[in-house]
Design a protein around this nucleic acid. Structure first.
Length: 262
DNA sequence: ATGGTTGCTGTGCAA
């Protein structure tokens, strides 16, 4: 089963790119972030015609997450538990049944947190604490679980082309990186880092200042695996070439193959 | 080099 994550930065503007990439990469499950539309504006029919079931947790203008799945959904839940006041659409969780058993997938759009010094940074850290609590609870199920999405976290210096440019940024502050490590320390495996320690692997290049042309990227889109998923990990990839397409997102897809189901 | 670009919205905000 191939599970992917991609921050598309507007699913409506990126529909052609997304359909072209689905055809090329043939993922079974895709978590989309920053769809930037309400549920009823999501181009559901186009994805259904491509062979996918659709689950959407949208929001007007900003944020918004969705999951595409070739297999039908056994469960869909939206919203990260732990704060009833949080109205931002950043979390969706699905369960699908593969022949060998259920696979649970959480699609996340973790808050950016900038500018540091505003309420945005504590919101990010609070969201990460809530995610940790939720993942800890899910891990007790002892099933294959993938928590993937735009984490807005640069875990290590080698995950940025120019780490010094990020030292005061919410994506790379020590507290941010510590919270990400706390998540890993629950027993999750970073799929990409389970297969390579290579530097220079990025998933985001800013639209500004020729970041793509200079390969000034950062790695902030991650797939974290429960032990039962990590045991079945077969391959991981980053579809960097998609950043060079016409009208690209500033993020590219990241995917992992698990030896479960199709 | 404290800029630069993109998307949605509303003529600014978020990233």
């Amino acid at each position: 089963m191939r599970i992917a994550t991609w921050n598309v930065n507007s699913v409506r503007l990126r529909l052609d790119n997304t359909l072209a990439w689905l055809k090329e990469r043939q993922p079974d499950i895709v978590c989309l972030q920053e769809i930037k539309c309400q549920d009823e504006q999501f181009p559901r029919e186009a994805f259904e015609a491509a062979g996918y079931n659709v689950a959407v947790h949208g929001q007007k203008g900003f944020n918004g997450v969705a999951v595409l799945s070739r297999l039908p959904f056994d469960e869909v839940t939206t919203g990260l538990p732990g704060d009833d006041e949080d109205v931002q659409s950043r979390f969706i969780e699905v369960v699908v049944s593969a022949p060998e058993g259920a696979v649970r997938v959480c699609g996340i759009y973790l808050p950016n947190g900038n500018p540091v010094g505003t309420e945005k940074y504590p919101y990010k850290l609070g969201w990460m604490a809530r995610l940790k609590d939720h993942v800890a609870a899910r891990l007790t199920l002892e099933e294959p679980l993938v928590v993937c999405g735009d984490y807005n976290v640069i875990p290590e210096a080698e995950d940025a082309a120019n780490p010094q440019a990020w030292v005061n940024d919410a994506l790379f502050l020590p507290q941010t990186r510590a919270a990400f490590r706390e998540l890993l320390n629950l027993g999750l495996t970073n799929a990409l880092r389970a297969s390579t320690d290579e530097a220079g692997l990025y998933s985001f290049w800013d639209y500004q200042a020729g970041a793509w042309q200079r390969n000034n990227g950062i790695l902030i889109d991650h797939l974290l695996l429960s032990p039962q998923a990590a045991d079945r990990l077969k391959a991981v990839g980053i579809d960097k070439h998609v950043r060079g397409w016409e009208k690209p997102s500033d993020h590219v897809p990241v995917w992992a193959d698990l030896a479960v189901g199709v």
